[in-house]
Design a protein around this nucleic acid. Sequence first.
DNA 1: CGGTCCTTTGAGGTTGATCAACGCGAGTGG
DNA 2: CCACTCGCGTTGATCAACCTCAAAGGACCG
Lengths: 236, 236
Amino acid sequence: MDCRTDHGRSIKRIGAAECVHCPVRERGLLGQADANGMMAIRANVDILRFPVRTRIYAEKSAGEYVYSIRSGLVKLEQQSGDGRARIVRLATPGTTLGLELLFGASYRHTALVLHSTDLCRIPVRLLRTLRDDQKELCDSVLRHMQQNIDAADFEITQLSTGTAQARIARLLLHLSADNATDARQWIMREDIAGLLGVTLETVSRTISDMKRRGLITEEQHHFVFDRPELERIANC
Amino acid sequence: MDCRTDHGRSIKRIGAAECVHCPVRERGLLGQADANGMMAIRANVDILRFPVRTRIYAEKSAGEYVYSIRSGLVKLEQQSGDGRARIVRLATPGTTLGLELLFGASYRHTALVLHSTDLCRIPVRLLRTLRDDQKELCDSVLRHMQQNIDAADFEITQLSTGTAQARIARLLLHLSADNATDARQWIMREDIAGLLGVTLETVSRTISDMKRRGLITEEQHHFVFDRPELERIANC
DNA sequence: CGGTCCTTTGAGGTTGATCAACGCGAGTGG
DNA sequence: CCACTCGCGTTGATCAACCTCAAAGGACCG
């Protein structure tokens, strides 16, 4: 059965959540649940697939679900002081979105899909119930909040500080665990710009320049880096 | 009895924590504890007074205390990409510092006192113990983490976005609940700069300019604002 | 093959960083 | 009491970084 978001794109239901088979079980929000918890999860948590450019939820809208990312890439935007959208952070598999619902009725960000994303849709109600008799879950929630804080701090100190060149170098290094980035973690110029607080053109110019200088080789949405040199630039 | 910080300034112990008399009890971390909890708190939590410019803790240093701010103002710095210190957020009464210790051994930020600050020094160990038999406390911790996240997001969308003028307008409005700011919430040019990611000189120039245009009147560390006009500027 | 989406590039203007000097009030010590 | 210093704020000149507006190139798709 498919369901539809408020803006009309079709979201596929993949199945019921089975933590045992979860690709991110250790890092996920509910992975540590006990047998009783698992039962409740199977009954209440669906796995959904969101295509690129769909919205998971909107800033200031009311909601009753928290989302745990199984795969894909999501950007969290918030309206900035000048009324435009500023990307506050990227969310990767293992991250939980919407935990702010534990204390308020509405989402703090607009969550938009950058790469096709599978996520577990968890009713906040379930989270509250489970928490009452499982202190491990409370721990897990805290851990995920800390993860959000760390990501926010990273955004401030690494991605909103220094020259455009340095910010880009830091982002590229951050997005790529190893020496290359595959299409999976590719994000387009506009989103890089939104994340760094610079314009799309500046991003394009800077990356082009890095390519000319041989720091970056790009082959169909796939970067290869001169990592040491990028690190040098990142530390400026 | 006084104790000394690692950098030699004397920190005064004011007394044992008595939540009943706490100026920020409703907002504080432990305010909702039950009778048993109160007893444990009295025995384990001290109230300390940190003078201006003292350090509460340092980034990456190990620690075993979480701090709940009763009064004063604290800046949280983190080393930025270029090696300099970037102010990540300001912490005001009711805020809890160092909650990251619940999951790791070391602090994420350097906490520096901007205005003389009283805080409750809470052993993380106590926090863990209390949490096991009081789910309200778990809630309280989560709430405080959410508060940190909100502050971080504010820093990104409001204070690291837009022109220097707009950022300053937003900060000034944010720091002042009402039409004026008293000396209590005054912070100096250097810290405004660190918070906004601009230079001290730019802050000075911009504020001087605002004064000349009559948007701001400053009388010994005490601003009075033309609030509507500042709000107009903030939305640019 | 025409259209759409993303990226690249250019020209010109603005903003803010940098370096440097000076002002000014609050201590501090002779 | 005065001279000195120190911390903080202000101001100026110059230059690099970045934004804005505009146009054009390339990839992908129906």
